[in-house]
Design a protein around this nucleic acid. Structure first.
Lengths: 115, 115
DNA sequence: ATTATATTCAACCAAATGGTTAACAATCAG
DNA sequence: CTGATTGTTAACCATTTGGTTGAATATAAT
C-alpha cells in the first residue's frame, strides 16, 4: 500500500521531470489533443512522442480515448494530487521556517531597539 | 531564462522522483542531519548516499554546512516553490474540472427531478 | 604519531532513459 | 482496392542513473 503510493509518486515525479512531457501537459490544459498534436511543437519523431505519452499515461496524468485512428488524449490532473500533497507539506514547512525567521528577526529588532 | 527555469524544474522533479531522496528530505523536515544520519535508514553505501545528497543539493533542495569532518545538511524548501507553483496550476485546473462536473451533475439532477 | 570516523572521489557495472529508424496495424478517403 | 494518415512496436544506440568497491582526504580522538 505505502509502496504503491511511493511507486506512484516515483512515476508522477519522473514524468514531470522532462520538459517535453511538461509541455505536453501544458498543451492539454483545457482541451483534448491527439498524439500528433502533442508531438507537433517538438523536433522529435512520432515514436518518441508516443513513448512520452505512454510515460504520462502510466503515471496516470493523461487519459487516452482511441477514436478511429486517432488517440485523443486528455489531462487527468486528479493524479497530480498525491504529488501536490507531498510538495505542499514541504512548502508549508518552508513557510513556517520563514515565519520563525521573521519572528527571530523581530526579536533581534526589539533587542536592538531596547539598547 | 525560461530555459534555466525549465532546467531547475527538471532537476527538482528528478530529485523528487526517487524514494530514497524523498525519504531523506522527510528526515530533514524540522532538523539538520549529517550525511551518515541521512544514509542510516537505507541499505546503501555511504558513497551512494553521498550521490543522492548531491542530487538534492544541485536541485537546491538541500544546503550543506561542512563542520569539521561532518557535513550538516538542512532542507531548503524555498527551492520547492517553482515545482509547487507548477503543480498548483494543474491542481487548480483539476478543481475547476470537478466544479464543472459537479455543476453538470446538478443540472442532470434538476432535469431528473423535473420529470 | 597513530588510529578511528566522516565523507568524497574514481572506476566500474547493470539497468533505465530518450532518441532514432524501419516495419507493422488500423482506419479513412478516393 | 489502393493509398494516405495516425499510431504503435521492435531493434538499436548513446547517455544517465543508481548502485558497488577501493582508495583518498580531512578531521577527531587516544
Amino acid at each position: 500500500m505505502v509502496n504503491n503510493q511511493n511507486q506512484h509518486l516515483d512515476e508522477v515525479f519522473h514524468a514531470l521531470a522532462d520538459p517535453t512531457r511538461r509541455g505536453m501537459l501544458s498543451q492539454l490544459a483545457g482541451r483534448e489533443r491527439t498524439v500528433s498534436d502533442l508531438a507537433g511543437p517538438y523536433d522529435i519523431s512520432l515514436a518518441a512522442a508516443s513513448k512520452h505519452i505512454k510515460v504520462l499515461e502510466r503515471a496516470g496524468l493523461l487519459h487516452r480515448n482511441v477514436k478511429g485512428r486517432q488517440h485523443i488524449c486528455r489531462l487527468n490532473p486528479k493524479s497530480l494530487s498525491k504529488a501536490y500533497e507531498w510538495l505542499r507539506f514541504y512548502e508549508r514547512f518552508w513557510n513556517e521556517k520563514l515565519d520563525a525567521l521573521e519572528a527571530l528577526l523581530n526579536e533581534e529588532d526589539k533587542k536592538t531597539k531596547k539598547k
